[in-house]
């Protein structure tokens, strides 16, 4: 076991974990942040996606130790953001299990490419699986958030 500090959702937390523990495991089992979901533990589904320094990361593909000295943001760290509103308004989820992962991926997408074109959106979003929706709803939600499609761009936390 090692004891270390992780900065998660703007809070510095001191926790003990094994070096072989994935970030996903530590977030869920040590910090009680269960928004990031286990779907495959194999990097395939994207349900575990969080942001590390503003970049989307599959937290099952990352060791918690690798998260030291980095800025980690999980879905619990997004409050009242335009993405969350857009997801609700466009019915972009059903069971909701993939939703935290999608939203965190989109959070990073919009930061990096506020006016992402179709192929960039596809490149980012094909990292996650949604088994419930037809993706068209998610597509609409994302496009409603492109800078060209809206006035303000408040609410996207900046972790870069």
């Amino acid at each position: 076991m090692i004891s270390a500090r992780l900065t998660v959702n703007d809070e510095e937390r001191e926790i003990a974990f094994w070096p072989s523990d994935t970030l996903l495991f530590v977030l869920r089992e040590r910090l009680g942040l269960t928004g990031a979901k286990p779907g495959c533990l194999n990097g395939d589904c994207g349900a575990c996606t969080v942001n590390v320094n503003g970049t989307a990361m599959k937290s099952c593909l990352m060791l918690a130790v690798e998260g030291m000295n980095q800025t980690i943001r999980t879905i619990e760290g997004l409050k009242d953001s335009p993405i969350q509103h857009a997801f609700i308004e466009h019915f972009a989820f059903q069971c909701g299990y993939c939703t935290p992962g999608f939203i965190m991926n989109i959070n990073s997408l919009l930061k990096k490419h506020p006016n992402a074109d179709d192929s960039t959106i596809k490149e980012f979003l094909s990292s996650n699986i949604c088994r419930c929706t037809g993706y068209q709803e998610i597509e609409k939600a994302v496009k409603s958030l492109l800078k060209i499609n809206r006035e303000d761009k408040a609410g996207l936390p900046n972790d870069e």
Partner: peptide, 12 residues
């Protein structure tokens, strides 16, 4: 490189 895995995985 861009053909490997998916975008999020390639961040790693």
């Amino acid at each position: 490189a861009s053909g490997v895995a998916d975008h999020t995985a390639r961040n790693k």
